[in-house]
Design a protein around this nucleic acid. Structure first.
Lengths: 318, 318
DNA sequence: GCACTATACATAACATGTTATGTATATCGG
DNA sequence: CCGATATACATAACATGTTATGTATAGTGC
C-alpha cells in the first residue's frame, strides 16, 4: 500500500506532521523508560522550562511552553504527584501559583541533562540533518508564518487552479455563458464548445483550467483548445461578474500560459472583440501581441471577432 | 517569556512538531467548518485514501494511512455515521470488511477536491516553502531515517559530549583514578588536580569534557588545562575499563581538539608513558607529534612521564 | 478433523492535546 | 466602598492518538 499522506503532499501536511510527532513522542517515552525516569514525555517541556528559567507561575509556563493552560496544569499535577515540583501561592496575588522544582526534581533534571538529553538531542539532529539546511529553521519559519496569518486566512485568500473533470462541465458553460450573453450573444460555435468540452477540447489534447478562490469557490475558467497541427486557441476564458476585481483572471491566464509553454505547441492565438478592453489589456500585460494574420486565418469563427492576438511561445521558452 | 521548545533545539524536536501539528490541525478544523463539510480533520486521511485508492479493507487502510488500526476503525465509524462510507463483509474471508464511499461520500469528496483541498494545499505550500528546499522532503527523510533506526536505538548508540559541572567532579576523579592506579600509582599532582578540577582547570580558563554513551552514561573524560601564557596541557584523559572498545576515547579526543582549535591557545601538549601504547596510538592518529622539547620542559611533573607529544595547532587552524 | 496459532477487526483504557466554563481573587469606575 | 469586569488557575468534556486485549474466523500440523 502506498502512503496516502505522502501522496497528498502539502494537502496533508498537518496530518503528516502529527503522525511524525506521535512517532517521535512514542520513541521519547521509550527512551525515558529505558533510563528509569519519568514515563510521560508530556512532562518534559515543563521540567525543562523550570530548569532553564527558574520558578514560573502557571501563566508564565503557558507562555514559555506555547500550549494551552489546562495542558500546563495537567503537566504540573503530574510533576507534583511525582514529587518533582511544588507550588506556592503568591504573596502579592493569591490567584497566582508559583511552580518550582523540589530537590528531587532538581536532581532528576540534573541526571537527565547528563545522561539522556545529550543523546536525544544528538539522535534528533542526526536524523533531521540534511542537505536542505536546518529543519528547525523551517519549523521556526512556519511558526512565524502561522503567527502572521492563520491557515484558514491563507486558504481563503488567494487562488488555486483546478483541472477539468466532468462535473465541472456545467461551470464551464455557466461562466462563459454569463459574459458572452452579457456583452454579445451566444453563437452556435459557442454553444457547441461549451456543451461538449470533453469531446472538443480535452479528448483532442487540449486543457481546460478553472480558478478557484478560497472564499467563493470556482470563479473562472479558460481553455487551451487544439485547432490543428499543434496550433492552439486560448478560448472560453471568463470570470464570474460577481468575483471580478480580485485578479483571478490574471492568475488563471498566467497559469494557462505556463501550461501552454510546457505543451510544445506550434502557435497559440486568441480571438476577441474591441469591446473587451479589460481583457485585451490583460492579454497584452501577460505577453500576447496583436496579430492581423491570425485574424485573417481564424477570425471568421465568431461574428463578434474583430481582434486577434498571438502569444510569442518561442521567446518565453528560451 | 522565551519559547522553551525553541530554546531546547533538537532536544525538543518531538514536542515542537507536535505543537505545530496540533496548531495546523486546529486550523484545518476551522477550514472544514467554514466550508460546511465534515467537522473532524481526523476523517480526512481515510476519505482521501478511499477516493484515491478505491475501496479498502481496514488493514489496507491502516497501511495506507500509517496509523494504528483502532485509529482507522474510529475514522471509519465516523464516516459511516455521517453516511459517507459503508462496509461490506468480504465473501472470501468473513473477518475482513471492505470500506467504500457511498454516493454521498463520493460527491462530498468531489466537492472538497474542488472547493477546499486546492486552497489548503496552496496555503500549506506557501507557508512551508522556503530557501532551504522542500519541507516535505525533509519530513520524508526523517520518516525514512526512523524506519531505518528508531530514536531509542539512535539515542543508545553513539556518543555525546557533556560539559563540566560540579556534580561531575566525582566522575572526573573516579574515571582517572581507575586507569592511573591500575597502571601506575596516583601521584600527589594527580590527587591535587582530580580533587580540585574547578579551581585548577575551569576557573583558570581550561575545559573539562565528558563523553557519554547512550547506554552506559558517562564513560570518559579529559581536560584542557591551562599551564601558563596560553600554553595548555591535555591531561586526565581516561575511559572506564568497562566501556572500552567503543571508540569513546577517539570521539572525546576529537571533540576536545575541536575545542582546543577554537580556543586560540599558543601550544597544546600532553605527557604520558610508553606503557600506554593504545593511548599513544590514538594521539598519533588524531595528529599529536612526539616532542622531546616538551618532555624536557614539563616532563618532571609526573614520575610516570617518559613521553611528551604536542599538537600542531597552526596547521589545523589554517 | 481437531486443537493450536495467526489474522482481522472491535473495544477498553489511557495519554495528551484542545475548547468551554467554573471559581476565587484582583482591579476599576462611579 | 461596592458592584462590574478582568485575571489566574481548575475542571469538565471531548478530539484523537496510542497500547493492550477481546472475539470471530482462517489456516495449520499432528
Amino acid at each position: 500500500m502506498p502512503d496516502i499522506l505522502q501522496d497528498l503532499g502539502y494537502l496533508a501536511l498537518g496530518s503528516r506532521l502529527k503522525r511524525l510527532a506521535e512517532r517521535l513522542q512514542a520513541d521519547a517515552t521509550q527512551i525515558f523508560e529505558q533510563n528509569c525516569f519519568i514515563t510521560q514525555p508530556s512532562h518534559f517541556p515543563l521540567l525543562a522550562a523550570l530548569d532553564r528559567y527558574g520558578p514560573l507561575t502557571v501563566s508564565e509556563a503557558v507562555s514559555a511552553l506555547g500550549v494551552s493552560q489546562p495542558a500546563v496544569t495537567r503537566s504540573l499535577v503530574g510533576l507534583v504527584d511525582m514529587g518533582l515540583a511544588e507550588t506556592t501561592v503568591s504573596e502579592t496575588d493569591r490567584r497566582q501559583k508559583t511552580i518550582s522544582l523540589t530537590e528531587a526534581g532538581t536532581s532528576a533534571v540534573a541526571r537527565m541533562k547528563r545522561d539522556v538529553w545529550p543523546h536525544v538531542a544528538r539522535a534528533a539532529e542526526e536524523m533531521a540533518a540534511g542537505p536542505d539546511g536546518s529543519l528547525l529553521d523551517q519549523i521556526a519559519r512556519i511558526e512565524a508564518a502561522l503567527d502572521a496569518k492563520s491557515m484558514p486566512d491563507r486558504a481563503r485568500d488567494g487562488h488555486a487552479i483546478i483541472e477539468y473533470s466532468d462535473d465541472l462541465a456545467g461551470a464551464f458553460y455557466d461562466i462563459n455563458a454569463e459574459w458572452i450573453s452579457d456583452m454579445f450573444t451566444l453563437e452556435p460555435n459557442d454553444i457547441a464548445i461549451l456543451s461538449n468540452p470533453k469531446e472538443l477540447i480535452i479528448d483532442k489534447g487540449g486543457q481546460i483550467l478553472f480558478v478557484s478562490t478560497g472564499g467563493l469557490g470556482i470563479v473562472g475558467t479558460c481553455a487551451l483548445m487544439p485547432v490543428k497541427d499543434g496550433h492552439f486557441e486560448l478560448t472560453k476564458m471568463g470570470v464570474l461578474k460577481s468575483a471580478r476585481g480580485r485578479k483571478s483572471g490574471e492568475f488563471l491566464l498566467a497559469k494557462a500560459l505556463e501550461r501552454a509553454r510546457a505543451m510544445e505547441m506550434n502557435s497559440l492565438y486568441l480571438l476577441t472583440n474591441r469591446k473587451c478592453a479589460a481583457a485585451i489589456h490583460l492579454y497584452e500585460k501577460l505577453g500576447f501581441e496583436h496579430d492581423a494574420t491570425m485574424l485573417d486565418t481564424y477570425g471568421q469563427r465568431y461574428d463578434r471577432c474583430d481582434v486577434a492576438m498571438s502569444y510569442p511561445l518561442e521567446t518565453l521558452t528560451a
